[in-house]
Amino acid sequence: METLYSVTVGILTACSIFLILRGRSFPVVVGITMLSYAVNLFLFSTGRLTIDGAPILGTSDSYADPLPQALVLTAIVIGFAMTAYSIILAVRTRGEVGTDEVSDSNSEDNR
């Protein structure tokens, strides 16, 4: 299970990084959003994986580590705020600059 989980997180991260390295703002923002999912899964798993152990007192014998869950919750909300800001900034940039490219227009980078 642990192998499956970490491989999944790794692949999710790699796909996000690939998107982050694109030359247009929209895929980059999507990549960052997806990376935040991967990071949340990573952070969450630092409390190790527990099935049927939701940290609600009185529902189980052994509880999952609640602290990473709380951290991830904070991270999700902050991530939401950041995603919202960056996507609208991307719109504004396109409005002002006229293109959504995030690299210098003459170089080979801008694909």
């Binding site: 982050i20 960052i32 935040s36 990071v39 990573f42 990473p68 902050i78 960056s86 900034l89 995030v102």
Partner: peptide
């Protein structure tokens, strides 16, 4: 605005790395 977009996206990547480090250390 363009410079801000670069700054924001770069720092968002930084924040993601921050969380991975904190997670690892925890």
């Amino acid at each position: 605005v363009r410079a801000t977009l670069h700054y924001v996206l770069l720092n968002l990547l930084g924040s993601a790395l921050f969380l991975i480090s904190v997670g690892t250390l925890y």
